[in-house]
Design a protein around this nucleic acid. Structure first.
Lengths: 137, 137
DNA sequence: CTACGACTTAAAGTGCGCTTGAAGTCAAGC
DNA sequence: GCTTGACTTCAAGCGCACTTTAAGTCGTAG
């Protein structure tokens, strides 16, 4: 599992080698050991990469992700700032899940009627009455 | 509620007038009536705008959102295609909620220990052992 | 009449998260 | 020795969702 090239690591994580280099350039991944000028990665690096992928997929920016991975090294109270950011992001994640849930409901409410679009049939959307001409059953 | 200018509509929806014009240019909003050359919006337009905002916030692209709003007008089986896309997006929304949930757990697991970063303290992350030197309690 | 603020257009610019291109290096196989 | 393929760097390019800029129009108040 250890001592992977960037190509091998990228294949396992299902992303492009260029993305891995980009993460390194942005301080998300540490500068790895090299052999013959080429980067070599361990399974620990893979673990870290998976955290990065999860964070980015969950909507974190590269800067936020870096902060969570590396902390606030330059401040007087790094842990306190970390917790403050974490708290904010936890709230944002809740909001995002709520939005996804609402969008799901909107889609589902239209899925089982005859309307081929949300524009004609808006039943299920908060407070909206059916638009005239909607083929809603 | 009806007969709003673009500025009024944008203020209510908490976005920039330029964003509303952009949505119109992308076919998300219909071309509104005009008075003295200026766009006038109804509360129905506001309803549609709120759907757009929800869809985009939930991770839909502009093109996907347009499809859900306007349907597939040029195909032989619009409703069938609409349903196929809706089904795919419902699955994607589930995945996104799952990712958010996993990220929340990762953040929470680190929130209550002494680590000021995820890099040092990775407890709670699937399969990961504590990194040596981690101040994890 | 003039000044003001909010609107209009089309085109160019921005920020983010990468990707691509060009030119070069390295190790293995024939 | 030479080719091959995967790697290297750095800079430029891309797609998306807007935003900004420049120059102009409209309706109201003074």
């Amino acid at each position: 599992m250890s001592d992977m090239t960037i190509g091998a690591l990228a294949r396992i994580a299902s992303l492009a080698p260029s993305a891995v280099r980009y993460y390194e350039s942005q301080g998300l991944l540490p500068k790895p050991a090299r052999r013959g000028g080429q980067r070599r990665y361990s399974s620990q690096d893979l673990g870290r990469l998976r955290i990065i992928q999860l964070a980015l997929a969950a909507g974190f920016t590269v800067a936020e992700t870096r902060t969570f991975l590396t902390g606030f090294s330059a401040t007087v109270a790094p842990a306190a700032r970390w917790r403050a950011l974490a708290k904010r992001k936890l709230a944002e994640l809740d909001e995002q899940m709520e939005r996804c849930s609402r969008m799901k409901k909107l889609l589902e409410s239209n899925f089982h009627c005859k309307c081929p679009s949300l524009a004609n049939c808006e039943r299920g959307f908060a407070g909206e009455r059916n638009v005239e001409g909607s083929p809603c059953s």
